[in-house]
Computed example of a mutant assay.
Amino acid sequence: MRIVITGGFGFLGRQVAGALLERRTFRGTPIDRLVLADRFVPAASPVADDRSPSSSSRGGPVVDVVQGELTDRLHELFAEPVDLVVHLASAVSAECEADFDLGMTANVDTTRALLEAARTQSAAGGPVARFVFSSSVAVYGSDPALPLPPVVSESTLPTPRSSYGTQKFVCETLVADYTRRGFVDGRVTRLMTVSVRPGKPNAAASGFLSGIVREPLAGVPAVCPVRPDLRVALASPRRTVEGILTVAEAERGSGPGELDGGVPVNLPALTVSVAEMLATLRRVAGDAVADLVTVAPDPAVEAIVGSWPAVFDNARAAALGLEPDPDFASVVRDYVADHPEAVTAAPLAATGRAGRAPID
């Protein structure tokens, strides 16, 4: 079993890789090699530390690292048979809106090149690769002539209102057709906004939905660029990784826990307003921390994030055994538990438990 993860050193890529290394199997088959492909590879990474063949002597997969532009490294990725591709590499929303050509190259052209490489493999008698594509809630948008329904499901027509959403929808359609033709076994997961992400801010329009929690918990001011009453659809990193791997492993069929047809799966969404997020932060960490957030609406960010739906019918995901986060307090709890080094003692001193947040 050989698995390729694109964007392997991005946040979600590392999380998916870590989960697979912990499981050591995929659909009951031992994972022999895990290939992490990315433009940038950090000098030190918990995942990269397992790249040597010695990891196999400990009973785990060998981790290979392929660095560079994906379209230039396809020969390395497919030098040996690939059983599963988890395609997470992507230019993000604000980047694509600012630079149309970047988005088309990084999102559409790269995805098609990967699909073609997988098609070539199967045409040569190799395995038909499972191809898991990470799409986005951004494929939906409220067109003035065709407004979104109050509750969105996979049967709702995507009408993206950003270049990023359009590019993701184009790729979804390509994956569906390559699957229909038997070139790959494609699966599309539509990700909700992932919050709370650790680390540095990225160029995603939705990045503030992590920043307004992450930065204050580290004692750093943050700006909220949307009105507080805006409702959004979120998923914690834990639930997102669970969703990606569940869709990847699901057998095709119409029974419980099976993937019915080629329709994308909207991963489970927690609906919450920005005001509720800030109130949770205040309850968790106190006034001094919450007051580090300044509301300063940015029309460009509001136009993108405000076009996305906030309320989803989670029935299709639930049929696979997936559920949304129960509330935003649990999302913050996960972040504090998973990244204690990013939560400073000073901001949490008011809680009486420095370094940990008491969350009811």
Rank of each mutant, 00 (worst) to 15 (best):
R112I: 13
L114C: 03
L115F: 05
E116W: 03
A118F: 00
R119Y: 01
S122Q: 04
S122M: 01
G125T: 07
V128D: 00
A129Y: 01
A129S: 14
V132D: 01
S134Y: 07
S136W: 14
V137H: 11
V137E: 06
S142C: 14
A145Q: 14
L146G: 08
L146A: 14
L148V: 08
P150G: 10
V152G: 07
S153H: 07
E154A: 11
G165A: 09
K168M: 04
Y178N: 06
F183R: 02
D185E: 13
G186C: 11
T189L: 08
L191N: 10
T193V: 15
V194N: 04
P201N: 07
P201E: 09
P201I: 04
A203C: 09
A204H: 12
A204T: 10
A205R: 12
G207Q: 14
F208M: 15
L209N: 12
S210V: 13
G211Q: 15
G211R: 09
I212D: 11
R214T: 15
E215L: 15
P216I: 05
G219H: 09
V223Y: 10
P225Y: 12
R227M: 03
P228V: 12
S236P: 01
S236R: 03
T240E: 00
G243Y: 01
L245Q: 02
V247C: 02
A250R: 07
E251P: 04
R252G: 09
G253Y: 10
P256D: 03
G257H: 12
